[in-house]
Design a protein around this nucleic acid. Sequence first.
DNA 1: CACATCGATTGTCCATGACAAATAGCACAG
DNA 2: CTGTGCTATTTGTCATGGACAATCGATGTG
Lengths: 318, 318
Amino acid sequence: MSNPLAKPHSDDLLTLPTIADVERDVGISKDALRVWERRYGFPVPLRDNNGERRYTTDQIQRLRLIRRLMDSGLRPSKLMLATPEELEAQLGSCSAPEHADPAVALIVTELFDLSRSRQFVALRSALSQTLARQGLHRFIIEIMPGLLERVGDGWLRAEIGIAEEHVLTEALQGLLRSAIYALPQHAVHHPSVLLTSLPEEDHGLGLLMVEALLESEHATCLPLGLRTPLPDIVAACAWGQIDIVAISISAAYPPRRALQGVVSLRGLLPDTVQLWAGGAGAVTHAEALRTLPNTRIIRHIRDTLAELSQWRDSPPAT
Amino acid sequence: MSNPLAKPHSDDLLTLPTIADVERDVGISKDALRVWERRYGFPVPLRDNNGERRYTTDQIQRLRLIRRLMDSGLRPSKLMLATPEELEAQLGSCSAPEHADPAVALIVTELFDLSRSRQFVALRSALSQTLARQGLHRFIIEIMPGLLERVGDGWLRAEIGIAEEHVLTEALQGLLRSAIYALPQHAVHHPSVLLTSLPEEDHGLGLLMVEALLESEHATCLPLGLRTPLPDIVAACAWGQIDIVAISISAAYPPRRALQGVVSLRGLLPDTVQLWAGGAGAVTHAEALRTLPNTRIIRHIRDTLAELSQWRDSPPAT
DNA sequence: CACATCGATTGTCCATGACAAATAGCACAG
DNA sequence: CTGTGCTATTTGTCATGGACAATCGATGTG
């Protein structure tokens, strides 16, 4: 409705995000933003009275899209020159298909809307209720992936901000931790699984989901927190009687480092310890990792249980 | 033992941290590091074969000290020109006094040593055991502050890395969340307290401690996660029947913004809602905030319970 | 088909200059 | 002496533009 040719008032300019804001919110470094502008001519932000970059909502939107597509492996040069329509098309082709189960879709939509409209109290109780009604397995395997994907999409389309995403993540974490704690303790608790992420990897929700699933199946979990140096992981295996090491790698993790990290880790671990790699960053390298001995790629959170059964059916000779 | 005049081999050089590493580990921006070097002549790092900055262990150590002292309000210009001895002296004068209770000190030392030596499994069970033995109140009010301070000191002296600190934080969070969940539910649950931090503030452990204390005293808590925009806090009060808003402000939070944030928030909140500000960043401004109506500064986590009693003794007329 | 080679791509680093926000120091009124 | 307002200094971030190493992708060879 607004005239795209009209220059914004200077008041408007000052409310627009600076380069530091974009770095934080979209996750692209200041250096990269400046060099893209120089090389590809996008994004060319407005300038405030002080000569500093001010990015428009449209540019941010497109940057988010680009960021997302780069995470899924596309090269910047292609993306930078593409029109918004082409970007959308790319997104459609790489995005996961709509969820098959309409009941799940409905629940996901409800939960997402509560996040978006910041009805956090209602959100919390809805989450608890959903967990109770659907059961832990279904909640983790069906609802949560759908919800997280929906949130990712919502972020992309600027329907939801980082603040809302943060609250949702917090709520989910709390819920899962409570659920884990509330699980009945059993005498049998094999295998014992060490859970962590590689250095410089900060996304921990996936690990928590795996932990909850495993604990519910009476495995013993040892969550080491995030960003564990490789030697520490190996050391932990030694004194911890660890059977399996599970690593979470997000899409944003540099692919090269991911591959390298998993291969080195496999080299350092004893042969008797099985290595599981999960998360979008691991799936990308599924082919390359297939040849590693005693290593499994968890393509989807739901495969966790299958892998667990498989391990139990044929445990390694010790 | 090693000759301080000997130049390091180029192999050694490549293992030293780059400017990006220092930015991440110490928390000082690349721009700031370069401008300090230019202006104050510290730190002047080595250069690798590629001409890029490589910081020595000593420099990092001193930078951590400087960072810490700056957090407690000292000016960079003074710190940059001071000798290491002078820095240490400054630290001694601003650091909190040793803990009075030797039993607590002993426990803290034990837990810290487990963190430092990366015996994470033992750490976890020691934490649970300590909580069970000491009780929730004593654990949160005595043990945790001592332990967190010890870890801060340990980081400063490079006895402990960010990875270890991360694991400890994770463990404490999990423990507190479990403890909160395990608390018996009571029918009486007043007041209801909204907990969060200001935008761009990321330290959430203090909030969790407050939440646990309050829940244990049958208050109702609504943790909003971190970095909540002020309008959202106000909105949440409206539909949440909130009696008290509790804000956590860490030492690293820019003092100016902290003061401004609390004052604006007080202005936006209804008079019937009490405002609590806690954390090192709030204590700094205790004087300035004293004049605000219906606002309390939580100087130490232990004051939480006293404030709660006080609120209950004289609830505001509604 | 596996593997080495060679441009093209791409993010980070460097140096330096500039400036606005934050802070300290100081003068002055009550 | 206390509070208040004004300069002067301090200090972190931003801008520009050049350079380069790591990575990618394609092409050629055993």
